[in-house]
């Protein structure tokens, strides 16, 4: 069985909360494991806040579409936006060994996405940024 939903959230920052609420309801309906649901909630927050807020990565806010697909083995999240070309995974991982005084504020979000998801990818397709996240469901 395959399930899923798709929603467009325009370019307003409140859209992050709308997506997280919709995903929480979807996870509830399909009884996704709590750790899978939470990891995806974090990844959605990182990528959407980045796309929707001014200056998050030095670019203007843009219109975003979120698609979530579920099958027996994995959850796939596809984020599409119409902004200028931007590969979120091109950034260098931050130094997570610095002390609390040395550490610059921020820069961790994409690192979290990479580590929490089982697979991430980016491509520029027909004038859109397309980010795909895959989280495997625990087998057995």
């Amino acid at each position: 069985m395959r399930h899923g939903f798709r929603m467009s959230i325009g370019a307003h920052p409140g859209g992050v909360g709308d997506v997280n609420a919709a995903f929480a309801a979807f996870a509830d309906t399909h009884a996704l494991p709590a750790d899978v649901r939470r990891s995806i909630n974090v990844a959605l927050d990182e990528l959407l806040a980045n796309a929707l807020s001014h200056g998050g990565a030095g670019r203007d806010p843009c219109s975003v579409t979120v698609e979530v697909k579920l099958d027996e083995e994995r959850v796939t999240v596809i984020l599409t936006d119409d902004g200028p070309p931007f590969d979120p995974f091109a950034r260098v991982a931050p130094d997570t060994t610095l002390s609390v005084e040395e550490r610059p504020v921020g820069g961790l979000g994409i690192h979290l996405v990479r580590e929490l998801m089982d697979h991430v990818s980016y491509e520029r397709r027909e004038g859109h940024n397309v980010v795909v996240l895959v989280k495997q469901l625990v087998v057995g």
């Binding site: 939470r38 909630n41 974090v42 927050d45 990182e46 806040a49 609390v100 005084e101 550490r103 504020v105 921020g106 961790l108 979000g109 979290l112």
Partner: peptide
């Protein structure tokens, strides 16, 4: 607490620095 993202971590870091 259900989950925390980097925006939440930044809040904790700010508070930790002030307390430190």
């Amino acid at each position: 607490l259900d989950y925390i993202s980097s925006a939440g971590l930044r809040v904790l870091l700010g508070a930790a620095k002030k307390l430190r």
